[in-house]
Design a binder for these strands. Structure first.
Length: 258
DNA sequence: TACGTGGCTCTCTACCTAAC
DNA sequence: GTTAGGTAGAGAGCCACGTA
């Protein structure tokens, strides 16, 4: 490993690393809630004989599916705004898509997959992923729009919900912010704020069943808006979603709220 | 010339409220 | 709780301007 890669830390760019495996004899449950994040997924298929590395772009709607034949998977969820500089492709080109890394990086994407398959342990997989990403950061330059989008993300994840206000606080026009944000994060700032609100509601619902309270705490005008948003983004009512989550247990491969 | 940025304008829709 | 209507805000297309 060279000097740049050895001093490179994934934690600056990666929000969450998760290794998952299905319960023996069952398909791997995949649950992806809208959250404005791009995720790199390394899957080991057929007990290690095959594998793939894909990039799942930010989702505007939830995705539920069963992945059969997957022995285990490692997911790197990038912080919003970092997928462009690290992957070398605008985030909005990946929105609601799952793309083989080879289609983005070319041959080096395929080489990385072989490299990861040869790794003996999870720390080694992460080390090799970290090395590959470190090399890419030296090959791509980071546009100013990505930095602007990341600052906007911090405000939208805080208490600021109006795009106009966020733009004002960052010293740019709302028009410019929307353009930069969509390119760097993959969804518009308003959709991002909406997904933040949804995630908050999901987290609060884990410890409470008072929907009126949850709606208010998460930032919804009322319970009706919470339910309408849930139906549109997730395709289920909040109650049905929690029932489903409870029935699944803990083995799911989730791209949404932890 | 390419790129980053801002202004104008139009359409769509989410939000809020009131009435039923 | 449901529905309908008004309003404000968001998104997007197009164009112009400044700068390297």
């Amino acid at each position: 490993m060279d000097a740049a890669a050895s001093t490179f830390s994934l934690s600056r760019f990666v929000e969450e690393v998760r290794a998952v495996a299905p319960v023996a004899g069952r398909a791997l449950d995949v649950e992806w809630l809208p959250n404005g994040r791009t995720t790199l997924v390394f899957r080991v298929i057929e007990e290690g004989r095959r594998g793939d590395v894909t990039v799942a772009g930010p989702r505007t709607r939830a995705l539920f599916k069963n992945a059969t034949g997957v022995a285990r998977a490692v997911m790197l969820q990038f912080k919003p705004g970092w997928s462009g500089p690290l992957l070398g492709v605008a985030a909005n080109a990946l929105t609601d898509r799952i793309v083989p890394l080879e289609d983005i990086w070319g041959r080096s994407g395929g080489d990385l997959c072989l490299d990861l398959l040869a790794a003996q342990s999870l720390p080694e997989v992460l080390d090799r992923l970290s090395h590959a990403v470190a090399l890419r950061t030296r090959q791509t330059s980071e546009p100013a729009s990505a930095r602007l989008a990341r600052r906007a993300v911090r405000l939208l994840e805080g208490d600021e919900v109006r795009v106009e206000r966020v733009a004002e606080r960052l010293g740019v026009t709302a028009r410019h912010l929307r353009r930069a944000f969509t390119e760097s994060v993959g969804i518009g700032p308003k959709d991002f704020a909406r997904s933040v609100r949804l995630q908050r509601a999901v987290r609060r619902a884990a410890s409470s069943k008072d929907w009126a309270r949850i709606a208010a705490d998460a930032g919804y005008y009322d319970q009706a808006h919470l339910i309408a948003d849930f139906r549109e983004l997730v395709g289920l009512t909040p109650g049905a979603f929690l029932k489903r989550a409870g029935a699944r247990g803990g083995e799911a491969m989730a791209g949404g709220a932890p």
